[in-house]
């Protein structure tokens, strides 16, 4: 067990480093030249980049699924009645612990450190941030690196949990991650976790009670409904306009 945990940790750290490097490079090549350009340019560049990334993986690693032998298999039985058991697997526990630790860490960075303040300042007014001595380019690069490191952890946990991975697996989780962030309120870290939990619960209950075929429809419908009726999300703060 200890060796599995160690292996998992090493894989996670290595993938964080590599993904961060990739993200840093992409920011330099595809987004930084477009800073200050018109609104849609970075979005189009980002869509192009996502096509590049998934197709790069397809070309480099082949289009087929990659199954991985299960690393963590143990489960804990929480409750058993009439032959039905409620179980909690170790991999679920690992996911919860890792999420909690990362949430705490990133919440601290964003709320309490100068880097986090610089990040928020850049989000609200880049020009003013620069006037106050914030190196905007560097701050944005670091933000991309942080985001990519988190995505790498999520990817490793995804593979550990489902045991199979494919080059096109990024798209739906990407949209759902955005849905979760919007649902919780853009800019709020606890909101993102809450949003992610809600999306997961809604999908699971929908699959359980209605139809598993339409579980993604349910997730996307919720995104639309949330944006239309509460655009600021659950924990998001309402936008304050300047006087």
């Amino acid at each position: 067990m200890a060796s599995v945990a160690l292996a998992l940790l090493i894989v996670m750290v290595v993938s964080m480093v590599l993904t961060s490097l990739m993200s840093w490079t992409i920011e330099r090549v595809a987004y930084r030249p477009l800073r200050g350009s018109f609104r849609l340019a970075p979005l189009i560049s980002a869509i192009g980049m996502s096509i590049v990334l998934s197709n790069f993986v397809q070309v480099a690693q082949g289009p087929r699924n990659k199954p991985v032998p299960p690393m963590v298999t143990d489960t804990i039985v929480l409750m058993e009645r009439n032959g039905f058991a409620v179980t909690l697997s170790y991999k679920q526990i690992i996911i919860m612990v890792v999420t909690a630790v990362l949430l705490a860490g990133f919440w601290y960075v964003v709320q309490k450190t100068p880097l986090g303040r610089a990040q928020r300042a850049c989000e609200q007014d880049r020009k003013m941030a620069a006037l106050l001595g914030v190196n905007v380019d560097r701050t944005i690069s670091l933000t991309f690196v942080m985001g990519a490191a988190l995505a790498a952890v999520a990817g490793t946990l995804f593979l550990m949990y489902y045991g199979v991975v494919n080059f096109s697996d990024g798209f739906v989780p990407g949209v759902k991650a955005f849905t979760a962030a919007v649902l919780g309120g853009i800019g709020s870290l606890p909101g993102a976790v809450l949003g992610g939990l809600l999306i997961g619960l809604i999908e699971t209950f929908w699959s359980g009670y209605f139809s598993i075929d339409y579980k993604d429809v349910a997730a996307f419908s919720i995104l639309a409904i949330v944006l239309i009726f509460m655009p600021q999300g659950i924990l998001g703060r309402p936008e304050v306009e300047k006087v």
Binding site: R39, L43, V175, F178, T179, V182, S211, D213, Y214, D216, V217, F220, S221, L223, A224, L227, I228, P231
Partner: peptide
């Protein structure tokens, strides 16, 4: 319903609608 939304939010909701239509066609 999406008229009140602006910019990136509009983009993501229309993306979701596109996916919903496709998923309904599949299912």
């Amino acid at each position: 319903p999406v008229l009140r939304l602006r910019g990136d939010y509009l983009a993501i909701v229309t993306l979701a609608f596109g996916e919903i239509i496709r998923l309904v066609l599949i299912n």
